[in-house]
Design a protein around this nucleic acid. Structure first.
Length: 397
DNA sequence: ACCTGGTCCCGGGCTCGGTTTT
DNA sequence: AAAACCGAGCCCGGGACCAGGT
């Protein structure tokens, strides 16, 4: 912890002395820190792969694979941001044009936020440093032309990290290649995903965090997010062990626990907070970022779902949610099926109590307590009833 | 055969950037 | 310079149709 950080924390403390959670973004599974913890070998492997960049040459195509929550995005975000700064602006390996526009880029396009041709180009342009990129009103072709314009001069190139292609609605590897075809000679893609079917020249595989490494990660993030000494190291170790090397889920639990403790003005995050927060992270969960990236009305539907009875059928949920929102039951129904299809909601079978096909019941398949703490369509207060209902007193730690 | 759940798709309205007309 | 218009993607509503159960 550096000095400015210490001072900043003192300021935050005096501002809101009784609160235990000082900066929830520090525990957010969707926030990537500048210096990844416990990942030196992987960083070295990726640096090896992009080595040609240091001589001004275009690095080879690269694939980075690994299960959810191992830090694929975290590593590439940290590294490419730093490389972009180093290669794009003034410095020993800088290659700026006279106008100040860089000639080489390390760009990151997250398909969670750019799942269509149009939004892919839009994100890419923003990453290349374009100042104004329209969100509506222009054709996809126009954006393609602008991308080509950016990377068409002799000597220019861009390394483009394409994250979460597997999750995009309208894009896949082939589609992205197609989109980049006009600038294929001047670009090199770094694919990020769980199991990628690409013929990359090099592949880096990332293994899950070891328990102690994940404990360290939690510990570091907690100490930045929460008032000093508000948590026990043992509890973090237990969370790390339980979440089996998945940093996303472990952070979701830690954030949930901190939110609960903060919400009841407790002076420490106690074991019951961690236990209750664990119940709010389903066994199979989508990345929280995917939920937060949904359009507002879908998030509203999810928020409302958390506030009605547990385990409703699709029809029950549609009626109850339609009553509490401006949407029709038909639309909510369709949203529910779509969200289930996307893995954000889980559908599980019920039993027939009438004629016809058995209805399926809905359950959140995302860390919903963390969702409540990070999305402004609801607050932690809105889900405390659910926390109470879901936390069984018999849970053993 | 009948009923209900689930999937798929399309029309139209909305917002907003860009273009043409006044 | 202002206003009207056009067209882009996105979103909602709803209907047609298919699937699975009694």
């Amino acid at each position: 912890m550096d000095l400015s950080e210490r001072i900043e924390r003192r300021q935050l403390r005096t501002r809101d002395e009784e609160r235990i959670l000082l900066d929830r973004s520090q525990l957010s599974p969707t926030v990537h820190v500048e210096e990844p913890v416990g990942r030196a070998p992987v960083l070295e492997a990726v640096l090896d792969a992009v080595e040609p960049a240091f001589d001004g040459r275009l690095p080879p195509e690269l694939a980075i694979e690994g299960p959810p929550g191992v830090g694929k995005s975290a590593i590439v975000h940290a590294l490419y941001r730093a490389l972009g700064d180093g290669l794009g602006t003034a410095g020993s390996i800088a290659t700026s044009t006279r106008g100040g526009r860089p000639e080489r880029w390390f760009a990151i396009v997250d398909c969670r936020h750019a799942g269509t041709d149009f939004s892919f180009y839009r994100r890419l342009l923003l990453q290349l440093g374009a100042e104004e990129v329209p969100a509506h009103g222009v054709g996809t072709d126009r954006l393609r032309e602008r991308v080509t314009e950016y990377v068409s001069q002799r000597g220019q190139w861009a390394v483009i990290a394409v994250d979460h292609v597997e999750e995009a609605d309208d894009l896949d590897v082939e589609a992205v290649r197609e989109l980049l075809a006009p600038v294929a000679d001047a670009t090199s893609v770094t694919w990020l995903g769980q199991s990628l079917d690409v013929d990359a020249e090099q592949t880096v595989r990332i293994e899950p965090y070891r328990h102690h490494a994940l404990t360290d990660l939690l510990s570091q993030r907690c100490s930045r997010a929460v008032r000093t000494d508000a948590f026990e190291h043992d509890d973090l170790r237990a969370v790390a062990a339980q979440q089996e090397g998945n940093a996303h889920d472990a952070l979701a639990v830690a954030l949930g626990a901190a939110l609960l403790a903060d919400n009841e003005h407790a002076d420490a995050i106690a074991r019951p907070h961690f236990v209750a927060a664990g119940e709010a992270v389903p066994e199979t969960t989508v990345h929280l970022d995917r939920v937060l990236a949904l359009p507002e009305n879908r998030r509203r539907v999810l928020a409302t779902l958390l506030q009605i009875e547990l385990d409703p059928t699709v029809a029950e949920a549609a009626t109850a949610i339609a009553e509490r929102t401006s949407l029709t039951a038909g639309t909510v129904r369709r949203f529910c099926y779509e969200l289930a299809d996307a893995g954000v909601l889980a559908r599980h079978g019920g039993h027939a109590d009438a004629r016809g096909r058995d209805p399926s019941h809905l359950r959140p398949a995302f860390p919903w307590l963390a969702f409540a703490g990070l999305d402004d369509v609801l607050t932690v207060d809105d889900v405390v009833d659910r926390v109470r209902q879901q936390t069984e007193p018999t849970v053993s730690w």
